[in-house]
Nucleic acid binder design. Structure first.
Length: 526
RNA sequence: GGUGCCGUCGCCAAGUUGGUAAGGCAUAGGUUUGCAAAACCUACAUUCACCGGUUCAAAUCCGGUCGGCACCUCCA
């Protein structure tokens, strides 16, 4: 089956055909580095990371994601704390890199910055000026949207419609309120570069056009970003690039991811609206379902302005859990951010790693004999269905369902008694071989989704430590009680052994007895 | 005012070129266990906001109603 992608430009899902056989060139709009990146960024870049990984399976991909490192907001933020704009920008770029790493996102092939591409930008503005698409105004240079026939094609609006809406503040000097700055004259105290238009800096939009051209050419395959960028950012990029290149097309396929919505003023669990005048604060319960509001819920409601920094989330949850949470919803649909859902994702991930650990334990202790493959024995191939899901406009929700099937089968195999699906008992050798197949499938799916790549033992150990922070006992004390319980069990003193179990349970520690007689412990999440 | 999206089990969420409802969490019963935990098995939407239409057949198409959201201004 061929890969089909929803194209914002045509508003339809179509089969993907690279411009150049075997190769894909993609551009994704990066951040403006003036503040810590938020969960909206996290979702967008996880979504496009999966796109990148999937495309890499079939093509030689060049992935470009820029940094807009000079901009009004950066200058403003820098002035606010008496810092050099470049220093501030650099700091947030570094933070962004750390956040992306925690989320398991691959590093793009090129991460160009505006400030190191001023000549390319200036050259493009000059071209636009020569072609009659730009005009100068008091040291600024503007793009004249009326000169570009197809303006509005991407976002599906006409200039007439836009002007009827008229929510932009009107700058009387401009020929149209929708004309946008290609170059901005420097005000005193602002950073600037010399140019034929005077001292100044690039406007927003032009940097992406110039850098895309430099690294990907006049035409390329994919252009991505958040839904909010569709207008005006992408519309303007398209207008600039086509005008400067004298071509009717720019990116072949435009992809836009849906938003992360923060919870409204209501209960995060049952979504019951908070009655007028009622107080919502941490420690109170929801009248409808009894859910206990936490500090975070409250904070989230207050910060509807999109500011939930990635690192605040990562301080409490595994980056991989946040990733899994995003992937349970198709990338184009909006997703509601909530702690309840994130905890679900984290629990699911913990169980996945427990299964992976069990597989490892079993298969390293057991030899296997070659024989029929997984698909040959079970009569179906989860990997094929997984691929079909990915080919359907990157349907990670369905892909995840296929992965869940493999995990269930692996657990079934690990039980060691009659296999329910096959209706017979498998030999250890056969079980081992099938488990290795499962492991291989999970690794392979995970390689695309950016999940399940950690060493299970290391992951589980880290989780245990993270969850232990609220514990009143040290691991050594716990281990000592486990030893005592084992002795009690050996002499069949179940009263004492259960007493120890209950004691630990009360402190949030759950014991797990394995078949081989060993006992492990996990921390119950509060 | 303009443009677009969405409303599927208690919660999250697939499915919309029409053909008889994926998966996860939760819940109930069972197997297993000295007891647990985990795991596995079984059950859990004759129904897809509502109303009407097209059709042999609709969650999927058409019209309408109600409800939620986004964009048109910086924003992933």
């Amino acid at each position: 089956m061929a890969l089909r992608i929803y194209n914002s430009l045509t508003r339809s899902e179509t089969e993907f055909q690279p411009l150049e056989p075997g190769k894909v060139r993609m551009y994704v709009c990066g951040i403006t580095s003036y503040a810590p990146s938020h969960i909206g960024h996290a979702r967008a870049y996880v979504a496009f990371d999966v796109v990148y990984r999937w495309l890499k399976r079939h093509y030689l991909v060049t992935f470009v994601r820029n940094f807009t490192d000079i901009d009004d907001k950066i200058i403003k933020a820098a002035h606010a704390n008496g810092e050099d704009p470049m220093t501030l920008s650099e700091r947030f770029i570094r933070m962004f890199g750390e956040d992306m790493n925690e989320l398991g996102n691959a590093v793009p092939d090129v991460e160009p910055r505006v400030t190191t591409h001023i000549p390319e930008i200036v050259r493009m503005i000059e071209t636009l000026e020569q072609q009659g698409f730009a005009y100068r105004l008091d040291g600024d240079v503007y793009y004249e949207v009326k000169k570009f026939q197809a303006y509005g094609r991407l976002s599906g609006r006409s200039l007439d419609q836009l002007e009827a809406g008229a929510r932009v503040e009107v700058d009387e000097r401009k020929r149209s309120p929708y004309d946008f700055a290609l170059w901005k004259a420097a005000k005193p105290g602002e950073p600037f570069w010399d140019s034929p238009f005077g001292k100044g800096r690039p406007g927003w939009h032009i940097e992406c056009s110039a850098m895309a051209e430099k690294y990907l050419g006049v035409r390329f395959d994919l252009h991505g970003g958040g839904k909010d960028l569709l207008f005006p950012h992408h519309e303007n990029e398209l207008a600039q690039s086509c005008a400067a290149h004298g071509t009717p097309e720019f990116a072949n396929v435009w992809m836009h991811n849906g938003f992360v919505n923060l919870m409204p003023e209501g209960c995060p669990k049952c979504e019951a609206a908070v009655p007028e005048g009622a107080k919502v604060e941490a420690g109170l319960t929801c009248a409808a379902c009894g859910y206990l509001f936490t500090e975070e819920d409250f904070k989230m409601s207050k910060s509807r302005g999109n500011f939930y920094p990635i690192r605040e989330v990562l301080a409490r949850y595994e980056g991989e859990a946040l990733r899994l949470f995003f992937l349970t919803t198709h990338y184009r649909k909006p997703i509601n951010f909530s702690h309840v859902l994130l905890e679900d994702a984290e629990k699911r991930l913990d169980k996945n790693y427990e299964t992976l650990q069990e597989i490892e334990r079993f298969t390293t202790q057991q030899t296997f004999t070659p024989g029929k493959s997984f698909a040959g024995i079970f009569g179906f191939d989860p990997l094929e269905k997984f691929k079909e899901a990915m080919d359907s406009d990157f349907n990670t929700a369905v892909a995840l369902a296929e992965a869940a099937e493999v995990f269930r089968l692996a657990n079934d195999l690990l039980r060691g008694d009659e296999n329910k699906r096959l209706g017979r008992v498998l030999s250890p050798e056969e079980t081992s071989r099938l488990l290795l197949d499962c492991q291989e499938m999970i690794r392979s799916m995970g390689d695309i989704l950016g999940l399940w790549q950690a060493e299970p033992r290391a992951y589980l150990e880290r989780r245990k430590i993270a969850k232990s922070s609220s514990l009143t006992m040290t691991p050594a004390q716990i281990e000592a009680l486990i030893v005592e319980r084992k002795e009690a069990r050996n002499r069949k003193d179940f009263r004492r052994s259960d007493q120890i179990r209950d004691e630990l349970k009360a402190k949030g520690i759950v014991l797990k007895d394995a078949k081989d007689g060993s006992t492990t412990w996990t921390v119950e999440e509060s």
